[in-house]
Design a binder for these strands. Structure first.
Lengths: 209, 209
DNA sequence: GTCTATATGTGGATAGAC
DNA sequence: GTCTATCCACATATAGAC
């Protein structure tokens, strides 16, 4: 009994190592270029063993996505409730960018039909993605209602823009220059996303009464 | 003489068809998922003939990139000189997004080392990319000097952000919903890029004297 | 120059020894 | 459960007929 439990535990630990390694590889090479061989050597096991844990490469990628989605959801829910919605949204984007710096966020969009099918046929993934979409949409609507987010653009457009900023290629390009600290990078990206590239040309800002 | 010239002309026309088809496929499937077979059937020729025009898949992709870069450069240079720099930058982004709607812009970033090497070993590509970088950087610095673009973010960061907006995945996702016209899509994306997601919370805008 | 057929390499997935 | 060896499908690139 004890031995079995221990082995099962080891199995779970290894599975987590596999997912973490896949995460990193997906973040750097993307789904199409990542090979199961890559994952195996990164973890230090043989290729065949991966299929004892995951039925296919797509299933493994789905597991990696779920891991990140759940982490992001937990981070958002851990934010102080008294924060206004826009602050939560900024924090969520910053968290995701930090996660990308740390271990990698496997959000590289591959248009592989196999992957798409596999993702949406995974209950874990669809549940996490649906929940994430709900949480972010709600925050966006709150922020609009509070006058902190522009109301002249459909909420859907805002949500998608936020999502795409988490996998902004500019982030990696700028990071590769080595001219910025991690915090500077995150700050710049978040600021550009929410405040835009432009000043308010010809206009000055006055505090409202 | 005439016959040879005609054949050469035909050859060039076909080459252009190949590049256009590759463009579209690169925009939809990306470099990794696009196969030479795809390109061949799209053009309506056999697979082998592609290698009479291009030495490799990477070379073909480079040609597609060069085509788009040159088109974008021409579009920027055709803008009225009296326009302020920020207007030119907005127009350039809008042009690229329109081009993406029309025929596709093959900017899907593949981290394939083969592709990277092939791109940077192509004089045509490096020249076009260098020139594009120069043109955009100059416009950004002008716009900052004119007070239209934020000066608190390094120019390099602004340039990279602009670049990454041209291949923003949100664009395709929103387009796929079918709820927006092409013009609305472009307008929203350009507006979000320059003006940001946020209102100026608690502030009202007053025109300067 | 264009096609058909094929050589070559690679990567996902499986079989079988231990 | 883990490894080694292998199968199979597919994609790049080439060879050879016409």
């Amino acid at each position: 009994m004890e031995a079995v439990s221990f082995k099962e535990q080891q199995f779970k630990v290894r599975e987590d190592l596999i997912v973490v390694a896949a995460n990193r590889l997906l973040a750097t090479k993307g789904f199409d270029l990542m090979t199961m061989e890559d994952v195996a050597t990164a973890v230090g096991v043989s290729k065949g063993i991966l299929y004892k844990h995951f039925a296919s490469k797509e299933t493994l990628a789905a597991a990696a996505m779920v891991r990140v989605l759940r982490g992001a959801l937990a981070a958002i829910e851990a934010l102080p409730a008294e924060q206004p919605a826009i602050a939560k949204l900024k924090a969520a984007l910053a968290w995701t960018l930090q996660a990308r710096l740390a271990g990698g966020v496997p959000l590289l969009p591959s248009s592989s039909p196999n992957l798409q099918r596999s993702l949406f046929s995974s209950p874990d993934y669809t549940a996490a993605a649906f929940r994430m979409n709900h949480v972010i949409s709600t925050l966006v609507h709150e922020a609009v209602a509070q006058g902190h987010l522009r109301g002249d653009v459909p909420g859907e457009v805002v949500v998608n823009s936020l999502y795409s900023r988490t996998c902004d290629p500019a982030f990696d390009l700028l990071r590769a220059t080595g001219r910025y600290t991690d915090d500077q990078l995150v700050e710049h990206l978040v600021s550009l996303c929410f405040d835009g590239l432009a000043t308010r040309g010809g206009l000055v800002l006055t505090r409202a009464a």
